[in-house]
Amino acid sequence: MDPRFVGIPDLAEAPSAPSVAVVVDVMRAFTVAAWAFDRGAEKIVLAGSLDEALALKARHPDWVALKDGPAAPGFDAVNSPGLLRSVDLGGRTVVQKTTAGTVGALAVKDASLVLCAGFVVAEATARLLRTRRSDSVTFVVTGDDGRADEDLACAEYIARRVTEARTDAGGFLRRAAGSRAAAELAEGVRQGVHPDDVALCLEADRFPFAMVAALEGSLMVLRPRAVPAPAGEVPV
């Protein structure tokens, strides 16, 4: 597999959509998405703007709308895994709008396969990529215009796991733990934060599913996809 690592601005200059894209947002969009599925959410609609999220919520009052930053009128939750992990989302639809993660996913909506990932679903994501046997995979490093070390570390970890299934997560997690995003969350620079958010974002391979985004009508919808371990594979 030939991995390519790009930021969101790079996608605008590409002549065509990538065939396979892995959109990485560790802190915190796709950690939150994974927790939402763990808490029972059926699907996540990735909104292109706060106004779109609010409009979807207005049309579907039973949907759960969440955003980055502090709580705001019209939104039910904030983009924090620590806060979301105690919420019952059984059978619900979540509308998610974040600064980087949802933007990155929408930027590659025309790809034949779009996976959204953080460390918590890294192995399942790598396993799905192994089954696809794709020659080229574009990893979208969403934070800081492609320079966010927590996202790049996660993208590189997933890429390595595709070809070397026993790759250890330790060094990649240490890079992410030392990132600017981790420091800002720990120091309270960002709003809508739980004290456990950084630790929850750095739990490698916690969930056994990958997250696949695809257009359903006019909406980009994220759903979990179970990726069982091959028979005889020993967990790392």
Rank of each mutant, 00 (worst) to 15 (best):
G171N: 06
P195F: 03
S112A: 15
G118A: 15
K109D: 07
C116L: 09
F119T: 00
V94Q: 06
R190D: 08
T102P: 14
R132T: 02
D88F: 09
G90M: 06
A165D: 08
K109W: 01
D149S: 14
L129D: 01
R166Q: 10
E184R: 15
V108G: 01
D88G: 07
V140K: 02
E164W: 06
D149C: 11
T163D: 10
V193C: 10
V64Y: 03
T99I: 08
L83K: 13
A153L: 05
G91A: 07
A153T: 05
V94Y: 04
Q96A: 09
E203W: 10
D144S: 12
D205L: 11
V120A: 14
N79C: 10
D145K: 12
A65C: 06
V140R: 00
Y157G: 04
T131Y: 00
G101A: 11
P195T: 00
A77P: 03
S80I: 11
G178W: 07
D168I: 06
T93M: 02
E184T: 10
T167Y: 03
A111Q: 07
V87R: 11
A155Q: 09
T142Q: 01
G90E: 14
F172D: 04
W63L: 05
L89C: 08
V108L: 02
S112K: 08
A126G: 01
V78K: 01
A169V: 05
L202A: 11
I158F: 00
L129G: 00
A105R: 05
V162Y: 05
T125S: 04
D68W: 05
V120K: 05
G104S: 11
A72F: 02
T138P: 05
N79D: 11
C154I: 12
G104W: 14
C201W: 06
T167D: 11
G74H: 04
V189G: 04
A72V: 06
K97I: 10
A126L: 03
L129E: 06
A105E: 12
N79S: 07
D68Q: 09
G146C: 12
D205S: 08
V141E: 06
H194D: 14
V140F: 01
G82M: 11
F139W: 10
Y157S: 01
R132P: 02
L173K: 04
V64D: 04
A100N: 15
E156R: 15
A124Q: 00
G104P: 02
P73F: 04
A159D: 13
G104V: 13
L129R: 00
L200E: 05
S86D: 13
K67I: 05
A153I: 08
L185V: 14
G178S: 13
